[in-house]
Amino acid sequence: MGEKTPERIALEEKALKLGLSFPGNIGDEKLAERVAEAEARAKETPPPPAASPAATGAAPAGVKDGTPADPATPPGLAVIEVHGPARGRWRAGRHFGPEAVVLDLAALSEAELALIRADPLLVVVDRVRPAS
């Protein structure tokens, strides 16, 4: 699979913000259709109030795998941002749901990274940790 275009990345981010789950191998046109449908539905009905992380069992912002993100991680270190389906999904010993899980590439083995990237229910976005 080739590199994702900036347009594809933006489309996936929009889909995730709308709460859509989709396989990683969905075509751009089909994903754009789903986003358009979700946007139309969102205009018709107001979104439900957001549940607290404690109520959903999700980790609070800045926490990954039950451990707070390491503030000592040097800026510019490559990370991946992983989104899973609404019901969640376990892969490589980690749980992924609709909220972003940010993982340092240095903390993953090649096998773990391959498992995460190959899972069609996970959306993986390559990122660079911004400077604080």
Rank of each mutant, 00 (worst) to 15 (best):
G62M: 08
K4N: 04
S132I: 08
V128Y: 07
L16Y: 03
P53T: 06
R89Q: 06
D119G: 04
V125Q: 08
E112D: 15
E37K: 13
A86M: 12
W90C: 02
H95P: 01
A10M: 02
A92E: 11
A92K: 11
G93W: 08
P120K: 10
E81S: 11
V123C: 07
E99M: 04
G19A: 04
A131N: 13
F96K: 06
H95E: 04
L16T: 14
A15Q: 10
L121I: 06
A36H: 00
R129P: 03
M1E: 11
L31F: 08
G57I: 13
T73W: 08
D70R: 13
A78S: 08
A32S: 12
L115D: 15
V63L: 01
P23S: 10
A100I: 07
E39Q: 12
E13A: 05
P85Y: 09
L77R: 15
K4L: 12
R34P: 00
K17F: 04
F22K: 09
A106F: 04
K17C: 01
P130I: 14
A111I: 15
E33G: 02
V35T: 06
A42V: 07
L20T: 11
R41F: 10
V82C: 00
L122G: 10
A51I: 10
R94E: 03
E81G: 09
V123E: 07
I80P: 00
T45N: 10
L11T: 08
A15W: 07
P85R: 11
P130R: 15
H83I: 06
T67Q: 11
R89G: 02
D126Y: 08
L77E: 15
L11I: 05
L18Q: 03
V123M: 03
A107Q: 12
P130S: 13
P60G: 06
T67D: 02
I9A: 05
V124R: 03
G93F: 05
A58E: 14
A100D: 01
A51G: 04
E12Y: 04
V125A: 01
W90S: 12
R127P: 00
G24L: 03
T73N: 02
G93H: 10
E39K: 05
K30D: 09
P60V: 13
P74A: 15
A131R: 14
P6M: 05
P71D: 04
L121Y: 15
A40C: 01
E3I: 10
L121F: 14
A118F: 05
R129F: 13
R127C: 04
K43A: 13
L113R: 15
E3D: 09
G93L: 10
P6R: 12
P23D: 09
A55R: 09
A92T: 12
K30S: 06
D70E: 09
E112P: 11
A54D: 14
S52N: 01
I116T: 06
N25Q: 06
H95A: 11
V124C: 01
K43D: 01
P60D: 08
P49H: 01
E39W: 02
L31N: 11
E44S: 10
P6V: 09
D65Q: 14
A55S: 09
A50W: 02
A111N: 14
G97L: 04
V79F: 03
F96E: 04
P48E: 04
W90Y: 11
R129T: 13
K17G: 08
T5R: 07
V63I: 12
L31D: 09
